[in-house]
Design a protein around this nucleic acid. Structure first.
Length: 479
RNA sequence: GGUGGGGUGGCAGAGUGGUCGAAUGCGCCGGUCUUGAAAACCGGUAACGGUUUAAUAUCGUUCGGGGGUUCGAAUCCCCCCCCCACCGCCA
């Protein structure tokens, strides 16, 4: 959520930001509703203030009169009661006026709030302007250095797979079928389209990747391990910025309504759970930066992606992901430094797996509502891309990670603040909304695609990357 | 699911119709004392929103959430949520 006060003062900043992101939000309508509401509010508050002063004055008198009536003789009673009614008349009239304003405000608020929630965070000035993913800008590419070891060492994405490794590669679909690593037919039988069952070494490899990534973040980089709910309230989805824009992407559990009175939704990323933890809290500045990581199952409806990437492990309804988030002070330089660092973790991780990747600076049109800046990491997937006449895919980069920088957009929605000055949570100092960032660490099975395709051998086997072997009981080859 | 007890400021905890944004204690901030620190003592210490200012001032809202009664609600009534204890059921 953006700061309504800032919008009032700099409406053009938000008009421009919305346009750059290729979104449509009626900023002028929002401004009009806001000024209407404020006018009504002041009117109501002035009346209330008057009512208060009258009450202060009248209260004791009424009390005294009421007491007198109790003790009064029947003859006196009537006169005293008339006097009491007279005293009550004045505040009663004011009360009617105050209450008359109520429905007027109530009529404005739903629309105002819904527009406010849709206003996107303007992209940063250094984000390239563009319409969509085609306008994203490649920042750099990494290729694994040559090594006298089994695997994709020395791989160069500018050359064909065959030129690199001396044999025609199989796609991950073929590998998975031939090595018995996944069963799509039975997955679909049980759960419908885009479903799968990882089998045997397929599931072991999946878990190995997650464990490797999780240990890397917690043991090597000091992130705190957290488990998170994947079934959350709507409030949590709105707070983290996924709703209302992404409502179509989430599975909605209406059954939850029965007991509790609120719906629940399956989360599409562990970010929701991690960011929701400190919702409505005022943190102590000394607690920051908070660095959390989780591994959780992610659910995505993939609405609107019908017919896209229907085969294989690329675009599926359910997967597991290690996610990292950082909650830091409201300081742009610190936010930016964390962004770089969080991307660095992913680079080390992919380098450990010898997977070629590239960094893409997402353009304004490819940013979501909540991002000021986003960098995608794409891993080389030899089985993707255009297929030549003799049936060999060209290979292509496929998105495996996405690193977002959100300023205070998300924390404002979550009402997550910290106390700047003084010590202790009860100490003095102004409260400020935190900044937040998030990035994928590893999403599997999608990451299995480059791993299997890059680490396959001419004989159809797949070498287990050395960093994953400790998580596979020392196994070095899938046959 | 049943019965009973609760939800008040950063925390603990008083408050059952007006003098309550709320006692008291802890914590925190500032000061006195001290070579320095601790202790002691003194003072201060909620969030959010509106109007306004150079700093400021001022008004309003908020005692789990919503609705109601009343001239007036933390306090009374209704609905909901959450927590605790015990019982039942069950991963």
């Amino acid at each position: 959520m953006i700061d309504l006060r800032d919008l009032r003062e700099n409406p053009d900043k938000y008009r421009r930001g919305t346009e750059l992101k290729g979104m449509r939000v009626d900023i002028d309508r929002l401004l009009a509703l806001d000024s209407q509401r404020r006018a009504l509010q002041s009117e109501q508050e002035n009346l209330r203030a008057r009512q208060r002063t009258i009450e202060k004055d009248l209260g004791p008198q009424i009390g005294k009169l009421a007491g007198a009536i109790k003790k009064a003789s029947p003859d006196e009673k009537a006169a005293l009661e008339r006097e009491l009614d007279g005293l009550k008349a004045k505040p009663a009239a004011l009360k009617d006026q105050i209450q008359a304003i109520e429905p007027q405000i109530a009529a404005i608020e739903p629309e105002l709030n819904s527009i406010l929630l849709s206003v996107p965070l303007p992209p940063d000035a250094d984000v390239p302007v563009g319409k969509g993913s085609d306008d994203n800008v490649e920042i750099r590419r990494w290729h694994p250095p040559a090594k006298a070891e089994e695997g994709p060492w020395g791989f160069d994405t500018n050359k064909s797979y065959e030129a690199n490794r001396g044999f025609r590669p199989k796609t991950h679909l073929e590998l998975v079928r031939d090595l018995g690593l996944a069963d799509f037919e039975r997955g679909v039988k049980m759960a419908g389209a885009r479903s799968y069952v990882l089998t045997g070494d397929g599931f072991l490899l999946h878990n190995a990747v997650l464990r490797y990534a999780f240990d890397f973040m917690t043991l090597s980089n000091g992130f705190k391990a957290m488990s998170v709910p994947v079934l959350v309230k709507e409030e949590c989805m709105v707070g983290t910025g996924f709703f209302p824009a992404g409502r179509e992407q989430a599975y909605h559990i209406e059954e939850s309504k029965r007991g509790g009175g609120y719906d629940q939704f399956l989360t599409g990323t562990g970010e929701v759970g991690l960011m929701g933890i400190h919702q409505d809290e005022i943190l102590d500045a000394s607690q920051l930066p908070i660095r959390y990581t989780t591994v959780s199952t992610c659910f995505r409806r993939e609405a609107g992606a019908a017919g896209k990437d229907t085969a294989g492990l690329y675009r599926i309804h359910q997967f597991d992901k290690v996610e990292q988030v950082v909650i830091c002070k409201a300081d742009e330089a610190e936010s930016r430094a964390w962004h770089t660092k969080m991307i660095g973790y992913v680079e080390s991780l992919l380098q450990g797996l010898a997977l070629p990747y590239r960094l893409l600076q997402c353009c304004t049109g490819d940013l979501g509502v909540k991002n000021a800046d986003m960098i995608d990491v794409e891993s080389w997937m030899p089985g993707r891309g255009e297929v030549s006449k003799d049936g060999v895919p060209s290979g292509a980069f496929g998105e495996t990670h996405s690193a977002s920088r959100l300023y205070d957009y998300q924390c404002r929605r979550l009402n997550m603040r910290y106390r700047a000055g003084g010590g202790g949570a009860g100490g003095k100092g102004a409260t400020t909304f935190c900044h937040s960032l998030n990035n994928t660490v590893a999403a599997s099975p999608r990451l299995l695609i480059p791993i299997l395709e890059m680490w396959q051998n001419a004989d159809g086997t797949v070498t287990v990357p050395p960093v994953l072997r400790p998580y596979m009981g020392g196994k070095s080859r899938i046959v």
